[in-house]
Design a protein around this nucleic acid. Structure first.
Lengths: 154, 154
DNA sequence: TTTGACAGTTCTATTTTAGAACTATAGCCT
DNA sequence: AGGCTATAGTTCTAAAATAGAACTGTCAAA
């Protein structure tokens, strides 16, 4: 497979995978949502090699998920901030955290707890239908080919 | 980083990434949710090398996401079926599809449309708070260390 | 007996990643 | 001025993962 054109496949999952579908990128995004912004901070908290961190940050900037914002003029220094496109990845990250909480836990309990500021309670993320508000389950969903997929593609 | 122990980190995202955090695994899971079950079917629809497909399927079985079920005795043939643990990955996949629909679309429109059998409508997946039912946004969530994370870990 | 379907395994070449060292700019201390 | 530290990278080689193609083994049907 040509990973370099995965973001042009007629499949929204492939396109997303092209951008965030590797281990380091997902871990970097976790740090972003925990308010980490600087190269050294990512590097020391993730123990990622500097080379790969540099690569991944460039890629995330290229795809419009992070913005590289100067915070010092001399010497020139930048920090990496989530754009709206990046903030919109939150459901993906939270869905992964929730699955990990549910299926990969150990006897020590959850590593992190999440509080919803609006209601003040500790919560779990739940995925619902935009139309009827009910909780979604895979078996209740039927898939149709949309306009972006010629039937031939399968 | 030691990828082989990522599933024991005191972080539910890391643990999830350890299992589904690579391109091929996510694409294989997409096929699973589209009712693909057999080795040859995965291989031809994904154009993945047989070697890697074999590896990834083994790993998904090892983590309890797929079950390897015989469907023919002579010759012995197996198909791969999502377990409940695997079905529970649905919100992750749908969150990725939705982000792709929203941010990686082209002029041709969506590749796939999703119909919710319960209400009969085409829908988008929405992530809400389990306690108050409101739509979740990253900035409204506050993170606390839970019992599974000694403060020292950070 | 030959062909074809299915579910893999094995092999070599290429690409990615790990790990460590190096570069560059500038502030601060003596 | 000279040396130390902080920050944000880049460059290099070795190790690991992936691609691509060929091969194995079982059985049914022609």
């Amino acid at each position: 497979m040509k990973w370099d054109t995965l973001d042009e496949e007629p499949c929204s999952l492939s396109r997303t995978v092209a951008v965030v579908g590797d281990r380091w990128t997902l871990l970097i995004l976790r740090e972003c949502f925990l308010r980490v912004r600087r190269f050294e901070a990512f590097q020391s908290s993730l123990q990622i090699t500097r080379h790969l961190l540099s690569e991944r940050l460039k890629k995330l900037v290229r795809f419009g998920i992070l913005r590289r914002v100067p915070y010092s003029e001399a010497p020139k220094r930048y920090e990496y901030i989530l754009t709206q496109k990046g903030l919109d990845l939150y459901p993906i990250i939270m869905a992964m955290v929730h699955w990990g909480d549910t299926h990969m836990g150990d006897e020590r309990g959850r590593p992190l707890l999440h509080e919803h500021r609006n209601c003040g309670k500790l919560f779990d993320p739940v995925m619902v239908c935009s139309e009827c508000g009910e909780v979604l389950h895979a078996k209740q969903v039927h898939v149709h080919a949309g306009p972006g997929r010629e039937e031939a593609v399968g």
